[in-house]
């Protein structure tokens, strides 16, 4: 009880715990805990044999946070910015620091634009996007989709019904828009 000074009574003694739990107390002494102390100055421990790393070649103007003084010596090179999403991403990096919500909100918006651009581009390729195979939704039939949810008292079932709408909704809307446009054009003729 927190209303008096005593330490709460232990349910199990150390001996009982040691008998029940393999390794109980092996790291009781903080000296055995590798994350303690949090900071430990030991540059020789890392394996680095440089004071500052060689610089990786910059093959295109690499976008970077304005909170960096310079381009870091090493960086990822996958998926350079492209299209409208690329313009948005470069703008977010150039104009806003990580401390500003606009930086992240523009990047999130660029992600959505990127998805639309990529889906449209895929239709001009030999491998168009396939929402059935790419969502893995068929595993609902082979991996107990129904029995994994029903009668399980899962909290996430309250919102999982939204997922298909969020995934398929834009496709249905786009198809509807396309149909309406084509029909309107046909009527004009």
């Amino acid at each position: 009880m927190p209303y008096t000074a005593e330490q709460p009574k232990r349910r199990e003694s150390n001996d009982d715990l040691r008998a029940r739990i393999p390794g109980w107390g092996a790291d009781l002494d903080p000296k055995n805990r590798p994350a303690v102390p949090r900071e430990r100055f030991d540059p020789a421990a890392t394996g680095a044999h440089w004071d500052f790393p060689d610089r990786q070649p910059e093959k295109w103007p690499r976008e970077r946070s304005v909170e960096h003084k310079m381009l870091t010596p090493v960086f990822g090179t996958t998926v350079p910015p492209r299209g409208v999403s690329g313009v948005l991403r470069k703008y977010a990096y150039r104009e806003y620091s990580e401390g500003q919500a606009a930086h992240w909100l523009i990047l999130l918006a660029a992600d959505r634009v990127d998805a639309v651009e990529s889906h449209l581009l895929s239709f001009a390729s030999l491998r168009p996007d396939n929402p059935i195979t790419e969502t893995g939704v068929l595993s609902e039939l082979t991996r107990h989709g129904y029995s994994s949810r029903v009668g399980r008292n899962r909290a996430d079932v309250k919102h999982q019904w939204m997922d298909p709408i969020l995934v398929a909704g834009p496709w249905v809307l786009a198809a509807g828009l396309l149909y309406t446009t084509v029909r309107a054009l046909a009527r004009r003729r």
């Binding site: 900071e39 430990r40 890392t46 004071d51 790393p53 010596p73």
Partner: peptide, 11 residues
Amino acid sequence: CGSCYFCARGL
């Protein structure tokens, strides 16, 4: 990298 301010301190 193993050599920056943070890596040298285990972070």
